[in-house]
Design a protein around this nucleic acid. Structure first.
Lengths: 200, 200
DNA sequence: GTCTATAGATGGATAGAC
DNA sequence: GTCTATCCATCTATAGAC
């Protein structure tokens, strides 16, 4: 029974649904999630609110649909890195994957933590919620000093903002280099104040 | 005729007004600006919406009142730095002032660009709007390479997030050191690809 | 699959009594 | 200076016709 190639995961996968997601992404990036109403999404598509509600039973689900694909990718990047044994390799692989992901969809990152409402929605999703913590952990390695945690958090928070608007005029390949440079500067090992000085 | 010591600048400066600002700061930090209603602010104070409207004629004005003191301080920091002749001194002075400001009121920074609604409100204020640009300019100096602009933006964006929640358990003095370390790593001059290699 | 219509709640904001 | 009461707009969400 050919109900298209995919159908279970997303409950309905028509072109209409994807148009809603695309329009929502536009509006979320422009005005923020809380300030975007279903009416605006419907207007942009030239349909009515009720038509939007055919595809999604709540606004919350639209937010998740907009954000989930990239976060799923992010999850893969983190998992791949976590399998790496050397911390140096792990960090580098994570960084490259992270920056690539950002470059590929700059606007999305503006939404991710830009609105506290989104953070609250993501916190309710059991798969997505712990991602941030795992990210920092994989990035800095085991028993990091606090300075490195601060640096990692600062970098991750800065990432999204740079993707958002701070560097809209810089082409992808170039921006990628700049960001990786920032990451290397920030995360290069500090002089350890805690003993344990050699590589494992 | 003694109408209290101050009265012109803030149109009314009673204890009630300051309580509203304090409650709003709490709620904005917890839930974001858009998601905070006047009803919630009133409830937290045990008064009614109308009582809040006695002090502020619109929600927008509450947001500005919450944010303006710190932004005014930020303005002073930027101005002081702009008067400095050496770019190296200018950057360093700016950084120290910036980090101090962040440390002194961590929560506020979470609000500043955390909600796009706030950005839109600030953009309408003639004094506050150009601050961000001047900040970056003063931080990186004249004709910066794009990499440095990216680094500066990344740092500034990371700043607010670190103040917000990423490092809630780190004491002020220590956090201050970590952040300054990050700043120095990020903003230390790159090898210039554009000629002009020496100090002025 | 998209519509009209509307429910039901809540938002910001105002008028006027006390 | 704080209240009650209210206005009106808008919001999310649902029911049911086409």
């Amino acid at each position: 029974m050919a109900m298209t190639t995919l159908d279970a995961a997303t409950h309905r996968a028509g072109a209409g649904r994807e148009k809603v997601v695309a329009a929502a992404l536009d509006l979320f990036a422009e005005r923020g999630v809380s300030a975007t109403s279903l009416q605006m999404i419907a207007d942009r598509l030239g349909v009515t609110k009720a038509a939007v509600y055919y595809h999604f039973k709540a606004k919350r689900d639209i937010v998740l649909a907009v954000v989930r694909p990239a976060l799923a990718e992010l999850g893969s990047v983190v998992e791949d890195a976590e399998r790496e044994r050397s911390q140096a390799v792990r960090t580098e692989q994570l960084l490259v994957g992270l920056v690539d992901l950002l470059i590929r969809n700059r606007r999305l990152y503006a939404i991710l933590e830009g609105d506290l409402a989104v953070a609250q929605i993501l916190a309710t999703d059991p798969l997505l919620a712990p991602l941030g913590e795992r990210l920092v952990d994989a990035l800095v390695g085991p028993d990091p000093d606090p300075g490195q945690i601060v640096a990692a958090n600062l970098f991750l928070a800065g990432l999204k903002s740079v993707g958002a608007g701070g560097a809209a005029d810089i082409p992808d390949a170039e921006l990628r280099g700049y960001i990786l440079d920032c990451a290397h500067r920030l995360l290069r090992r500090r002089r350890q104040p805690t003993g344990r000085s050699g590589p494992s």
